[in-house]
């Protein structure tokens, strides 16, 4: 089997479809013409894409124009036109969830880049052999299970027994610094005004390392002679950063900001687990993704939830386009 696979790969590398067809015909119960080989080879992906990506997409669009009692089966759908969209646009909680989402996307997303770029510069230039280890440490939260992170932070944020409040209580005893810190334990996950900052902090911590890796990769592609020439011209580190590093990072900045926009607006796991799946006090941690999930699975309104998901998609698409416009090279900038 391994030999057959190796022979097939070699044939494909040579772009010899006739040989590939002979190899596949030996293995498969049907005879394949060389012209059909590419389609057969790509069919596993296409099938999975159709079943798990395209079908849900089309089904949710179909559902957005229907009301449906799911336990009655698929036949129990009633066409309602744009009623679900109208309902979603007039729904206070949908707008509230959008406000929460944008708040948390900005509060977690903007600092990610403001910190990741200088941090990547520092790792690139100032940390010789330890760089790989440092990058690994920063990247670790990104590859850790969200559930584990949320459970860990829910313990850290505990009002009476959490390490964060314990540390704050100790710091409160320090003269001067103590006056800036709260005297009473902070109810992180119970008070609406604390929920969004707590969630944003976790999201920032989690995705910082990912952005550092992106920027570090981009920094390593900047030719060193540009900096050398700048230094010879008397440019200091800030001017080098401002006129060489930042413009060179622009394509990666566009990519990273786009990912942050999309990820931020689809924020789900962290607030869902931290708030027990309900959005927290006064729904302060309820992102749009949580709200549409709850609208479908808790409140049984799959049509409205589908309409909301499409509205969210249009928002994500619009903001991605705006990001593209913002980062597009301007005439005369190169």
């Amino acid at each position: 089997m391994r030999q057959t696979a190796a022979a097939l790969l070699q044939a494909l590398a040579r772009r010899d479809l006739a040989a590939a067809s002979r190899i596949l015909t030996d293995v498969l119960p049907v005879r394949l013409s060389p012209a059909t080989v590419p389609y057969v080879l790509i069919s596993p992906f296409v099938l999975l894409f159709l079943v798990f990506s395209l079908f849900p997409l089309v089904f949710s669009l179909y559902l957005a124009f229907h009301v449906w009692e799911p336990t009655d089966g698929l036949a129990a759908m009633t066409y309602v036109g744009i009623d679900n969209f109208r309902f979603a646009l007039g729904d206070d909680w949908f707008w509230k969830s959008l406000g929460n989402t944008v708040w948390m996307a900005l509060a977690s997303g903007v600092p990610q880049h403001l910190v990741a770029i200088p941090l990547a510069c520092f790792l690139n230039s100032g940390l010789g052999r330890g760089r790989d280890l440092a990058v690994g440490v920063f990247f670790l939260p990104y590859i850790t299970s969200t559930v584990a992170i949320a459970i860990l932070f829910s313990s850290l944020f505990s009002t009476d027994y959490g390490l964060i409040n314990l540390a704050l209580a100790h710091l409160h005893g320090i003269p001067l610094l103590g006056t800036l810190l709260p005297a009473q334990p902070v109810d992180w996950m119970g008070r609406p005004e604390n929920i969004k900052p707590a969630i944003s902090l976790i999201v920032f911590w989690r995705y910082l390392g990912f952005n550092v890796v992106l920027y570090l990769a981009a920094l390593q592609t900047i030719p060193g002679d540009l900096y050398e020439a700048a230094r010879m011209d008397g440019a200091g580190w800030f001017r080098q950063f401002w006129f060489i590093t930042l413009p060179s990072l622009r394509p990666m900045l566009f990519f990273a900001v786009t990912l942050s926009v999309i990820g931020g607006l689809q924020l789900f796991e962290e607030p869902f687990i931290l708030t027990g799946g309900k959005g927290g006090s006064d729904q302060a941690g309820m992102s749009t993704a949580i709200y549409l999930y709850r609208t479908a699975f808790d409140f049984n309104d799959f049509g409205a939830a589908s309409a909301m998901s499409w509205l969210l998609f249009f928002l994500v698409a619009g903001l991605t386009y705006a990001t593209n416009r913002a980062f597009r090279p301007r005439a005369g900038s190169q």
Partner: peptide, 17 residues
């Protein structure tokens, strides 16, 4: 189920805000 959430949210506003 939705009513339960709405009432809890309004109670939060009464008690906290």
């Amino acid at each position: 189920a939705f009513a339960d959430e709405v009432i809890n949210t309004e109670l939060d506003k009464v008690m906290d805000q």
